[in-house]
């Protein structure tokens, strides 16, 4: 077993986050896998130029750039919706949704939770990319506005307004999907 390089020590711990980010930008697991492979190779080659303390924003920016290149190649830069993203069954899940209920309190509860989760996934997948990326970086990766602005190459104020707009759009989409009253929605 070869000794891992400094790059591997710093970057490999972020592979799950990198894959998740690429997935949410591309709405496709297959494309996300290609993008993560490409991004890690690019990051490895550019590692001599890395001078920061925290590798995460730097690495994520490379992942993001690779994802956008793929998006551009696909000729559909925004609003990529794929049912793969919305209703993809996680590897851990097996068989029919009914199996999930085996340990749960009731079949009905488990079904409702799964349905709600799928709705959130679909709503997020339908969000325009510019909003989706800040929402994912904030909600799923828990990054600060400053870190997000570094990754997306935008001003902190832009991150703030996109995040605000993205959440409002999501809220409205979820209200519509669940059929809740949204009379006071924006």
């Amino acid at each position: 077993m070869p000794i891992p390089s400094r790059f591997e020590q710093l970057a490999l711990p972020h592979q799950e986050a990198a894959f998740s980010l690429a997935f949410w930008l591309l709405n496709s697991r297959a494309d996300a896998e290609d993008v993560v492979q490409e991004a890690f190779l690019r990051a490895f080659r550019a590692f001599d130029g890395f001078r920061g303390e925290d590798i995460r924003p730097w690495l994520f920016a490379i992942v993001r750039n690779a994802a956008y290149r793929t998006l551009n190649n696909r000729q559909r830069t925004a609003n990529v919706i794929s049912l793969d993203a919305a209703f993809h069954r996680r590897e851990g899940d097996t068989g029919t949704p009914l199996d999930v209920a085996a340990e749960g309190p009731s079949v009905e509860d488990a079904l409702i939770r799964k349905a709600e989760r799928d709705l959130v996934r679909l709503a997020l997948a339908e969000l325009p990319t510019a909003f989706r990326e800040v929402v994912v970086l904030r909600e799923i990766e828990g990054l600060s506005y400053r870190e997000i602005s570094e990754i997306t190459g935008t001003a902190v104020g832009t991150v703030m307004s996109r995040l605000s707009r993205g959440r409002l759009l999501l809220r409205r989409a979820l209200a519509r999907k669940t059929g809740k009253d949204c009379s006071h929605a924006l």
């Binding site: 592979q15 799950e16 986050a17 894959f19 998740s20 997935f23 949410w24 697991r29 996300a32 896998e33 996680r90 590897e91 851990g92 989760r117 959130v120 996934r121 997020l124 929402v135 994912v136 909600e139 799923i140 828990g142 999501l170």
Partner: peptide
């Protein structure tokens, strides 16, 4: 959204 968690790696 936070509850969705990371998309698991293949």
């Amino acid at each position: 959204v936070a509850g969705l968690g990371r998309e698991p790696m293949p």
